[in-house]
Amino acid sequence: MERKDDEIRLGVNRYSERHNIGTTAQSDDRDYQEPPLAPLFEPEELSSWSFYRAGIAEFIATFLFLYITILTVMGVSKSSNKCATVGIQGIAWAFGGMIFALVYCTAGISGGHINPAVTFGLLLARKLSLSRALFYIVMQCLGAIFGAGVVKGFQKSQYEMLGGGANVVASGYSKGDGLGAEIIGTFVLVYTVFSATDAKRNARDSHVPILAPLPIGFAVFLVHLATIPITGTGINPARSLGAAIIYNKDHAWDDHWIFWVGPFIGAALAALYHQLVIRAIPFKSK
Rank of each mutant, 00 (worst) to 15 (best):
M1E: 12
M1K: 14
R3F: 06
K4T: 12
D5A: 13
V12H: 09
N20Q: 13
Q26G: 01
P43D: 04
E45D: 08
W49L: 10
F51T: 01
A54T: 02
F59E: 03
F59R: 01
I60M: 08
T62Q: 08
L66T: 03
Y67H: 10
V76P: 05
S79E: 14
S80R: 09
S80A: 11
K82G: 13
G97A: 10
I99E: 13
Y104H: 13
C105T: 07
T106R: 04
G112Q: 02
H113T: 02
A117K: 06
A117M: 07
V118E: 05
T119V: 08
K127L: 07
I137H: 02
M139W: 05
C141D: 13
C141E: 10
C141W: 07
I145D: 11
A148F: 02
G149P: 03
S157E: 09
S157K: 07
Y159D: 07
E160D: 11
G163Y: 04
G165A: 09
N167T: 12
V169W: 04
A170M: 13
S171E: 15
L179E: 07
I183C: 03
G185A: 04
F187L: 05
V188T: 01
Y191E: 05
A196L: 08
D198W: 02
S206Y: 11
P209A: 08
I210V: 14
I210E: 14
I210S: 15
L211T: 14
P213Q: 05
A219P: 00
F221N: 09
V223T: 14
I228P: 15
P229K: 14
T231G: 12
G232Y: 10
G234R: 09
P237R: 00
R239W: 06
S240N: 12
A243T: 12
K249Q: 15
A252L: 12
W253V: 04
D254L: 12
G262W: 02
P263W: 00
A267Y: 03
A268S: 10
A270N: 01
H274T: 02
L276A: 13
R279V: 03
K286G: 05
